[in-house]
Amino acid sequence: MELDKRILNGDKRACARLITMVENNEKEGIDIVKKIYKHSGNAHVIGITGPPGGGKSTLTDKLAKELRKRGKKVGIIAVDPTSPFSGGSILGDRIRMQDLATDPGVFIRSMGTRGNLGGLSKSTQSAIKILDVYGADYIFVETVGVGQSEVDIVKTVDTVVMIMVPGLGDDIQAIKAGVMEIGDVFAVNKSDLDGADKTALELEMMLDMGFKDDKKPKVLKVSSSKNEGVSTLLDEVISHMDYMVDTDKLQKRREENAKVEILNLVEEEIMQMVLGKTKTGQLLDEISKKTALRKTNPYDGKDIIVKSIKE
């Protein structure tokens, strides 16, 4: 049977193989994604983001188990960083999800960022669609541990769960621009530690000053290691989806997400055109050298490159 039909039938190996093909940018794989795309859009896609060591994987594990109790099929995409030097990576999120490995209703895939900077890899979007067609009711997308500006997740999913932990900074950190703006639900994890109430309060105060939609995101305290507050958090995530469906915001958000995805693909293609042209590539090397020696500057360099592309 063909790969697309096997995925529609919920075949795990077919699903895994197609994700690999897309990750490796194989044309055959991309053609299959084009074919199955119309069958996607049914899953609720949930982003899990937060600082390194904040408990994203453990919380994802617990949320997935809660959904399994409710009889739902779950997909998980866990992204970890790729080395900028060797191109290799250690993808270790599964360590926190051991019992889920053999659950027939769960599919977990680890991905390296492969040079992408926004907290995800560039094939994450397609991997979501593949898991959606494969039959996942809920898909978790766990980002790399984020600092202040990895916000790609908000343009990729339906609901963003921003995980915070006690003791990382004061209320000024909370009102800075960037990752703190993207949460649809805030979870203060490790709430059994000192300072959780203060962190939750600071988040509430930040949100009192304004938020992106007309629904103020909830701040919930959880302890994923003790499995406390997880069910309430899941209810809140689902209620965010209900709110978006009721207010027609879901369509708008998915339009925005599609726009970003298309623009990223366009950008990638243009970059390949630029760097693929041997003449432009050589020119770039020359100009970079001159710029480093201060014989020219990046702005004039840009003009030369653009002129060369137009030729």
């Binding site: 060797s86 290799g88 990576s89 270790g92 599964r94 360590i95 051991q98």
Partner: peptide, 11 residues
């Protein structure tokens, strides 16, 4: 990893 491979480490 240092040889450029993607390692899935499960513990």
């Amino acid at each position: 990893r240092d040889a450029g491979m993607e390692v899935i480490y499960t513990g």
